[in-house]
Structure formats: structure tokens, C-alpha cells
Design a protein around this nucleic acid. Structure first.
Length: 849
RNA sequence: GCCUGGGUGGCGGAAUGGCAGACGCAACGGACUUAAAAUCCGUUUGCUGAAAGGCAGUGCGGGUUCGACUCCCGCCCCAGGCACCA
């Protein structure tokens, strides 16, 4: 260990009495770095490994106190795990590709690389000023060729396995962010990142076949017991499994197959028309010979041009045009008209819907508008449903009627048989449909990892051989283009030769969505500098899955779903033996602040102008105070309102703790005799007990639910108890020993939250530096034992009195005591005690009447 | 509409079947000070009462229980996710 200032006691100095945070914080940060507190060797196989991962940020430049919550929670947990003897890997890096860098290049002429690395330096300094520690030797930036080389390798793995493909399709388009994945479009049809409206454009794009993994992504959610229910629920909603049946109808006039998917095969005898999406290829085919040709094509074309918001929004009316053709229902041979409608979506199911107006509200509305038939096939209990009299669809259960061989049976009960009937006759079977769509991963931008594909006129889309990775981004591009991807104008980048046939060929100029870069970074942290592979299987198998992942809820269906998908693909490719990346997930709430303008609460953001900078707070109060307040502000999973006053409370508490130790340092710094319960005063005995109750409670709070706010409240209570005991230099040795033990306990318990002051006071208390290697305080079970306890006496469930009793008092005696207690005499006098309930150690309830 | 999560003092919140409001913030009163800041002590759910005390009280209405913020049933409100998804 290098010679170090902290090994010496602070000199007696009036200033030191004032809690010199600005002096001690940089000193201990240096100490942790010098002693390698956060360094971990991932080639070793320690007994107790713990992978604590905090979501890495986009290097936007500066952070506010809201960002800090994430890192502080992760750091508190990391430090707790270190202090409790785990080998902790806690790395940090940068999600460094992204649009802001490119915009900076356009508007200010600074190269994205330069802009990004400058921001990274700034933000690293900021993180360090919070006293948040990482193994910085593992730092990575997704924009670095040594990293994105392997992102490209991940792409190739998917390509090899047939999971990456190109297709021409209507895609989400944002004028600023270019193409978007479905997950990046908000419910109101705006871009998740920039808020601009999203429109559909027909483009040839690269997709990942995430739909192939939909069943596993959904089913495996059940095993993620360490994840918040909410996130699992959000992912399940997004994947959206529907169970039902496929039934093959046919176009009556032409014999064209016209399969449908339905979740209600029990209503199939009630089909009175068929609804088909305007984009469906069959529409164009049938239109050619339809008497309605012109109207049909006009309608289909007009619907196709509409934005999805305009077409599927709440206000959209149901419209359609008759094709002139019919379809035949294979169950009963009915011929029903085939309509093109705006309410059927091409992307879901088969793009064709069997319409049962009597039992589906959408079909009902459409049938009413166009005067189509309504046929009741499920009767309610009083058999009162009449097609002509219905004002809305009957969607509840009932008895099947007009349903051929199934008449008289309950609709739910008959459903499996009805599906079996189709299967037996070869015109249908039970199927599942998912809402999730394939993942669009190409972007028309420069600042991303180039998709490692070469387009050859002879060989088609050819993957770049692994040995040729990375496909490097050229530095010399022109950012001043009016529109379009600068990479697509860089001839030197584009021109290449085909790896298969050697002829001249063109490089793909789309880059990979940022999400792919952040999908596998947790693996790279394990072997961050490995040059021969993305990671070593035996190392990730040992250190993964991540034991605790910490980040924002906004990634519930983006980053977290994509990461699960990519990991499963890598698993299937034999790269690792586990199938989920994150064993436990914690999503912290946002820090909000009231806007000066309109008094509303908003998430802290530059655009709302309600950010609070950590820099001034650290300058004025110290990092420990900021950390303590950030953790104390509320339950970490909930959104909370930042209060400038609240930080004063945290500051006051730390100053109090500092002063209590500092002014008594002469005797506190000397070794004390061991605490002996039989030798202490009553006041000291209470304090000793409080100390150990607190140790137990805090350990519990950290281990079970990360409720650091409660843990800190307990620490404050212990501090209050120390003050109440008022033990000073002139007290008996045993009392002083207890006081010292309590203060030592306080300092050790607060160490994960306020580490600098803890280190400093640990030395003041006479220990060698290094509180994080001193272990976590142990509970002394004998301290928890109480000789006398207070029991409450209830009368009919209301507390009416209290008694001090020996802790060991038995049930019968307690009962006796309660019935004769003076304190409740007035409630029992003249009444009969009907029943006595004794809860040992807590209370006695007398039921009187 | 469907699926989650939530509703407790002036405020953030604590208590997961056993003494509601821990801890903190704010407010008020007091001590110290020439004064202020800082610090320390005290009060602080509402109503009622001189006080002791009493009554009410965890969104609303029922229920289970000796006992319910906690469990069950029905409803209201708020937040989030999904949604013409067949």
C-alpha cells in the first residue's frame, strides 16, 4: 500500500470540527483507486461472486441529480456486497453511438468522435465526484472499433442463423431519427427519442427475426422472479400472445385460399361476412376481375396512404368496400361476402378476419353501417337475444345455437371440440399469434456500427468474413449534406470487392441501431480487452447472469427485451450456457422537479429547464450528503420530487455524526474494553440493544428490497439513541465502550451510502484505514434479548393500557396480569371477560361484553 | 375496453394480520447569541376537553377476524403498459 495521508489522524484543527467534506472526499476517492477497491479478476473463480450492473449512459455531456440516483443505488449495493465479502464485478461504460453526436457534427462542425469522447471524459469525472466506484479497467465505449467489431460479429451470428434478413416493407420513419423499430414508436404515434410524428415509408431494411423467439421470450418471463412484476407484465403485453385457431376459408368464385386467425372459433357459425386488409395481395388480384374494380383500388390505395395513427386512432370510423367476391365457410358451407375494410391490419394474423357481428363489437358496427347480416350463435341465459333487436354485440358466454353439431353446448366448453373438428377435416387447427413484429435494426446514419454486409451483383448480400472485422467507420465524411446518410456518399467506404467471388461490390451503408450495441455489453465487461473473441465462454458462464441489474423503467420493452433476445440467440449459437442475461432487475424511479413556469411536476430534463446539477451540491454539501439525500428521498423504485430543502436534512445529519465522533475523538480513538451486558448501565444497555436491532434491520432492508430510505431512517434512529444516551468521557468504561460500539456501528452501517465520511471516521475511531475490508457488523443475539418488555393491553381490540413485564412471562401469567391490571380496570369493571388472546411479546386482547 | 401498480398527517414516507403516522422536511414555541446563522430542547392527524381523557381516522361501501393500512368482495380515483390485435 502506498504511503497515504489517511493513515495519519487529522491534526487537531478548529476547521476539522466543521466536517471537512471537501478535504476528505477526494482523498478517499484516491485511496480507493490506489488500493484497487473495485478491481476484480474475472479469470479467477472466487467463492462468492456478484455481478452488479448499472445501465450505462449515453454520453450526452453532463448529468443531473436524477441520473445520479441510478449510479448511487448501484454503488451502495456494490459497496455493501464488497463489505460483506463478495467478489464484485461492477463495471461502467458508454452507450456511445447515437444521433446527438451526429447533430453536433452538422451544426457545430465538431466530429462525432471528438464530441463523444469529450463528453465521456466529462461524465466520467462527474461520476467519480459522486464517489461512485467502478472497475475502470473494464470501461468500454460502444463506438470504439475494438467494441463494435464484436457488435458486428453479433450481427453475423444472427445472419448465419437466418435471423437477420432484408425486406421491402412499410417502415416507421422519423425525419430526424430515420427508421425506427416498432418499440421506438410511442402509443400516440410519435418518435420515442425526439417526439416528432412517425410516418410509414416503403423501404428495404434489415430486420431481426425476434418473432421466432416470441414464445421463449414470453414463457421465460415466468422464471425471472427477480424482476419487477410490472416489467414482466409490460414485456408480456408487448409480445402479446393470443391463442385461437386458424381456419382455411376459400374464395367461392376463384378457389383462392383465404385463411383467417380467430380467438373465437366458437362463433364460427355466426360468420356473415369476411373482412380483408387493404394491403392484402388478394385484394389486388381479385380487383382485376371485380365489377367494383375502381372503387376497390381507390379505397385500398387511400387507406394505404394514411398514417397508422390516422387509420387506427380512436376517432377512425369503420369503412369498407365490397370486393364482389364471396368466401365459403368450411364449417357449414355458407357463402358470405368479402369486404375490404380499414379496420383489419395486414401485419396481424393473416390479414383477413372472419366477421361475426352478433358477437364482436367491431364487426357489429361495420355490419350496421353497411346493412350486413347478423346471426346469433351464442344465446344468453334467458334466451332473449334477437339479431334484429341488438344494439351492440353480445360478447359474453352462453349456449351455442345455429351451430350445427355443437348446438346446445356451452361455447367455452365446446371450443376445443370445434377446433378439433376443423383439424379432423383438414381445414384448420389450433394456433397462436403474437403481436410483436420483427425488429428493424438498420438506420440511415453515420454514427453507428456499419452493418457488415457487402452487396454483390452476382452473389447478393454477402456477410463480411469474421477475419475482416471490424468494418471501420471512415473518419473523413461530409456532415454538411442537406439530407441522407453521410456514409452513403463516401465512395472510399462503399467500394469494395465481394468476399465470395472477388468482383467489385458495394458495402452496405446502413448502420446498426444503437440498441444492438447495448444488447450484449454486459458480456464484454467480463473480457473487455480480449482480442480474439467477443468474450470467453467459461468466463461469462461463471460471472453471468448479472446478479443485479439496475436502471430505468423506460427500457422495459426496448433494451431489456432486445438483450434477452440476443442472449438467447448467442446461447443457441453455443456461445454461453445460460439463457437469460439478467437474473434480477431493479428499476429505479425518476427524480422529478416542479417547473418554475407552470408548477407541474416533470422528470428532470434539460428541455424542461428543471435540472439540478450535482456539481454545485457536491461543492456546497459534499458527495456524501448528496448520496445520502438521493437514497433517503423515497422508496428507490418510485418517482420522487426533488426538494432543495431536503438536502439540508441529510447535511445536518452527517454534520451531527461528524461532530459526535470528532469532539470525542480523544477517548473514542483509544481501544475500549469489550461490551459486557451485565456490566453496563441501563441507558447503555438500551443503546447496545438499539445498535444490534439496527444492524439486523439494515441488513434486512438492503438484502430484501433495496429500501435504502428505510435503512437510512434506522441509522438516524440509532444516532438519536446515541444522543439520548449522552455518554461522555467522564462515564464508566463500560458505558463508553457501548457508546464507541454504537458509533462504530453507525459508521460501518452508513459506509455503503456515505463512504467518504465513513472511511474518515473509521480512522478517527482508531482503526487502520479501509472500512470496506473490515467486514459488515454482526448481530450479537444476546444484545437483542430483553429482560422486561412492554405489552399493550387491548379491550375489544383497542389499546387501553400498557404494562412492563418480564420478557419471560408465560401466557397464563400475562392473562392474569391483563385481567387484573389497574390501567384497564375501568373497561372491565362490571363486564364479563369472554375471551383472552395473548400474543407473546406484544399484547393481550380482552374481549369483554 | 384489457393488463399492472398505487391511494396513509401540511409534505416525502414508515408499518404486510397485533400499539397507525417511525425517520426526515416544513411549521410553531423555547434555550444559546448584542443580533443573525448554526446548534440544542420541545410541540405538531383531526375533532372534543382546563386537564386526565374521549371519539373519529390509512380513497369509498361491505365482509372475514378477538384484532384489518395489511386478507376477501364490490366500487371510485390516479399512474403506467397494451388496444379496431380479430
Amino acid at each position: 500500500m502506498p504511503p497515504f495521508a489517511a493513515t495519519r489522524r487529522l491534526e487537531s484543527d478548529v476547521m476539522k470540527e466543521k466536517y471537512p467534506y471537501s478535504e476528505i472526499e477526494p482523498k478517499w476517492q484516491q485511496y480507493w483507486e490506489d488500493t484497487g477497491l473495485f478491481k476484480v479478476d474475472t479469470a479467477s473463480r472466487p467463492d462468492r461472486k456478484f455481478y452488479c450492473l448499472t445501465m450505462f449512459p449515453y454520453p450526452s455531456g453532463t448529468m443531473h441529480v436524477g441520473h445520479g440516483r441510478n449510479y448511487i443505488i448501484g454503488d451502495a449495493l456494490t459497496r455493501y456486497k464488497i463489505i460483506t465479502g463478495h467478489s464484485v464485478i461492477s463495471p461502467m461504460g458508454w452507450d456511445a453511438f447515437g444521433l446527438p453526436a451526429e447533430n453536433a457534427a452538422k451544426s457545430r462542425g465538431v466530429h462525432p468522435k471528438e464530441w463523444t469522447y469529450k463528453n465521456i471524459r466529462q461524465m466520467r469525472t462527474q461520476i467519480q465526484s459522486w464517489g461512485v466506484g467502478y472497475d475502470w479497467d473494464r470501461e468500454l465505449a460502444t463506438c470504439h472499433p475494438d467494441y463494435y467489431r464484436w457488435t458486428q460479429w453479433v450481427f453475423l451470428k444472427l445472419f448465419e442463423r437466418g435471423l437477420a434478413y432484408q425486406k421491402l416493407a412499410p417502415v416507421n420513419w422519423c425525419e430526424l431519427c430515420t427508421t425506427l423499430a416498432n418499440e421506438e414508436v410511442l402509443a400516440d404515434g410519435t418518435c420515442e427519442r425526439c417526439g416528432r410524428p412517425v410516418v410509414k415509408r416503403d423501404l428495404t431494411q434489415w430486420f431481426f427475426r425476434i418473432t421466432e423467439y416470441a414464445p421463449r421470450l414470453l414463457d421465460d418471463l415466468d422464471g425471472l422472479t427477480g424482476w419487477p412484476e410490472k416489467v414482466r407484465n409490460m414485456q408480456a403485453n408487448w409480445i402479446g400472445r393470443s391463442q385461437g385457431a386458424t381456419v382455411r376459408f376459400t374464395v367461392s368464385e376463384t378457389g383462392d385460399p383465404c385463411p383467417i386467425f380467430t380467438t373465437r372459433p366458437d362463433t364460427i357459425y355466426g360468420v356473415t361476412f369476411m373482412a380483408i386488409a387493404p394491403e392484402h395481395p388478394l385484394v389486388e388480384k381479385l380487383a382485376a376481375t371485380s365489377p367494383n374494380r375502381d372503387r376497390l383500388l381507390a379505397f385500398a390505395g387511400q387507406q394505404r396512404a394514411l398514417s397508422s395513427a390516422a387509420r387506427t386512432g380512436d376517432t377512425a370510423k369503420k369503412e369498407g368496400v365490397f370486393t364482389g367476391f364471396h368466401v365459403t365457410n368450411p364449417y357449414n358451407g355458407d357463402r358470405v361476402p368479402l369486404w375490404v375494410t380499414n379496420y383489419v391490419l395486414m401485419e396481424y394474423g393473416t390479414g383477413v378476419v372472419m366477421a361475426v357481428p352478433a358477437h364482436d363489437q367491431r364487426d357489429f358496427e361495420f355490419a350496421k353501417t353497411y346493412g350486413l347480416g347478423i346471426k346469433v350463435v351464442i344465446q344468453n341465459t334467458d334466451r332473449s337475444l334477437q339479431a334484429d333487436a341488438m344494439t351492440e354485440a353480445y360478447v359474453d358466454d352462453g349456449t351455442l345455437v345455429d351451430s350445427g353439431p355443437f348446438n346446445g353446448r356451452g361455447n367455452r366448453e365446446a371450443m376445443p371440440d370445434m377446433i378439433r373438428h376443423a383439424a379432423g377435416n383438414g381445414f384448420g387447427e389450433a394456433t397462436e399469434t403474437y403481436r410483436i413484429r420483427d425488429w428493424l435494426i438498420s438506420r440511415q446514419r453515420y454514427w453507428g456500427a456499419p452493418i457488415p454486409i457487402i452487396h454483390c451483383d452476382t452473389c447478393g448480400a454477402v456477410p463480411v468474413p469474421e477475419k475482416d472485422l471490424p468494418v471501420a467507420l471512415p473518419d473523413d465524411v461530409n456532415f454538411q449534406l442537406e439530407r441522407g446518410n453521410p456514409l452513403a456518399h463516401h465512395e472510399g467506404f462503399i467500394r469494395t470487392t465481394c468476399p465470395t467471388c472477388g468482383k467489385p461490390a458495394r458495402r452496405e451503408t446502413d448502420t446498426l441501431a444503437q440498441w444492438l450495441c447495448s444488447c450484449w455489453y454486459y458480456l464484454r465487461y467480463v473480457n473487455p480487452r480480449l482480442e480474439t473473441a467477443a468474450f470467453r465462454r467459461e468466463d461469462v458462464d461463471f460471472w453471468m447472469p448479472v446478479d443485479q441489474y439496475i436502471g430505468g423503467i423506460e427500457h422495459a420493452v426496448l433494451h431489456l427485451l432486445y438483450s434477452r433476445f440476443i442472449l438467447k440467440v448467442l446461447h443457441d449459437a453455443g456461445c454461453c450456457s445460460f439463457t437469460e442475461p439478467f437474473g434480477a432487475l431493479f428499476t429505479q424511479g425518476m427524480i422529478c422537479k416542479r417547473s418554475d413556469k407552470d408548477g407541474q411536476l416533470y422528470k428532470m430534463s434539460k428541455s424542461k429547464g428543471n435540472v439540478v446539477s450535482p456539481d454545485e451540491l457536491i461543492r456546497d454539501y459534499g458527495a456524501d450528503t448528496l448520496r445520502l439525500y438521493t437514497l433517503f428521498i423515497g422508496p428507490p423504485e418510485k418517482d420522487v420530487e426533488w426538494s432543495d430543502r431536503g438536502i439540508e436534512g441529510a447535511s445536518r445529519f452527517l454534520r451531527r455524526l461528524w461532530t459526535r465522533v470528532y469532539v470525542n475523538r480523544d477517548w473514542l480513538g483509544r481501544p475500549a474494553e469489550p461490551c459486557r451486558i451485565d456490566a453496563m448501565s441501563a441507558a447503555a444497555r438500551d443503546l447496545y440493544r438499539k445498535l444490534h436491532v439496527t444492524i439486523a434491520a439494515i441488513t434486512q432492508a438492503i438484502e430484501t428490497d433495496f429500501h435504502f430510505n428505510s435503512a437510512i431512517a434506522q441509522i438516524m434512529e440509532l444516532m438519536n439513541a446515541v444522543d439520548a444516551a449522552a455518554i461522555g468521557a467522564d462515564h464508566p468504561a463500560q458505558d463508553r465502550a457501548v457508546c464507541k460500539a454504537a458509533l462504530e456501528g453507525l459508521v460501518r452501517l452508513i459506509a455503503p451510502f456515505a463512504p467518504h465520511i465513513a472511511e474518515e471516521l473509521w480512522v478517527e475511531l482508531g482503526h487502520t484505514p479501509g472500512i470496506f475490508s473490515a467486514g459488515w457488523p454482526a448481530v450479537d443475539p444476546t444484545a437483542l434479548v430483553q429482560d422486561t418488555i412492554e405489552v399493550a393491553i387491548q379491550i375489544n381490540g383497542k389499546v387501553r393500557g400498557r404494562e412492563q413485564v418480564p420478557a419471560a412471562m408465560g401466557q397464563a401469567e400475562l392473562q392474569q396480569l391483563a385481567t387484573t391490571s389497574e390501567s384497564v380496570r375501568r373497561y372491565t369493571e362490571g363486564k364479563t371477560i369472554r375471551k383472552v388472546i395473548v400474543v407473546p411479546g406484544k399484547l393481550i386482547n380482552l374481549v369483554v361484553g
